[in-house]
Design a binder for these strands. Sequence first.
DNA 1: CGAGTTTCCTATCAATTGATACGAAACCCT
DNA 2: AGGGTTTCGTATCAATTGATAGGAAACTCG
Lengths: 207, 207
Amino acid sequence: MKALTDPSPRKIGRPLSFDREVVLHEAMLLFWRHGYEATSLADLTAAMGVTAPSIYAAFGDKKRLFLKAVERYVSGPVTAQSIIDGAPTARDAARGLLQASAIGFTGANTPPGCLLASSAISCSVAAADVQAALADIRKVIEAHLHMRIKRALAAGEMPADTDAEALAAHVMAVIQGLSTLARDGATREKLLRVVSFAMRVWPDEAT
Amino acid sequence: MKALTDPSPRKIGRPLSFDREVVLHEAMLLFWRHGYEATSLADLTAAMGVTAPSIYAAFGDKKRLFLKAVERYVSGPVTAQSIIDGAPTARDAARGLLQASAIGFTGANTPPGCLLASSAISCSVAAADVQAALADIRKVIEAHLHMRIKRALAAGEMPADTDAEALAAHVMAVIQGLSTLARDGATREKLLRVVSFAMRVWPDEAT
DNA sequence: CGAGTTTCCTATCAATTGATACGAAACCCT
DNA sequence: AGGGTTTCGTATCAATTGATAGGAAACTCG
């Protein structure tokens, strides 16, 4: 049960010469834009301003660096989990996820699209575990949304014959698609119009 | 105005020892599963059963081989264009595209997902042109669907205030998402249920 | 057969990949 | 100051990348 961020900074040995968080952020941006395998160590050292041995000493090998970048990506102030849990209804949860995606995929200071949706879609067999790790994250989000919809069903918020699994999967599919649309140059405004269309699939209130 | 398939087989020189179409198909399957950059020449030679110099002599460099594989992929008996043009209504066009995607992305003898949607989503700067080529194909399909919807609007098939652009983009987004869902292991049956949900966004008849 | 033509495969290329050995450098503590 | 400890950068590693040179092989035509 140790704190996630070690509260005691190193006191002995040569002091750190670069901020781990800053260079990890830089690595995340590179992986976000070019994907896991297409980002080379040379690209990373150039963008992070750190030599290869320092990267390996600080983060382990390339795979662990990427996974830490992913961890940073999903650990923002607003997460899929927080959106789902914070929404008053399942419908609001879905709309919140979609709108946050449309906005997050078209940030001015970040690469277009979604890191989870684009950085390891197709890769070599050597990176199959990285691919699976991202797929697991996607599946966890989908499972959370699925459960939220089932709760709404039990609460009578929606028609009893609603296909909760397909509804959750549809939201996830649209999110994936928004990422590609953003990468292809679609504007935030266009993505938000797509979201408002996607929300039309929602079943009417049961009442 | 020459025929696409040269009708005069070579008569002089050493005869071809392997079927160009067969090995191109094999290359397409590899690119489909692992993407453009993650598929190495060594992978290709192993799967195609042809040495590297023969590949280069027959198809040019790796980039042109990939583009020819893409051309083969989109040149099946049933294309997006044929589905859109053959549908009696814009709604049928969208449903046809979505259902064909759900089925095509879960073929028993092909990799899961869509080659156009997964083989060059994120890549290095050296492959930016390949990435752009696939994006162009996606945009052409979206533009065709967009125009088909506008025609339907003009014909009074749908409410006059319908956002044709967003509607077409939504269909494309769902298709992209279906590809990722299929890659993550979703069954054809699940994908088809997602499709039936996605079709609920369609505006009611104008009448 | 032999000249011409095209395709094939062996061997190899320079460049880049992810990753590391090793010693100098920079700090704390005594 | 000097031992202990950790981090830093230079130089380099083996393996793999996409790609090619050059000659043997296989055919048609004369």
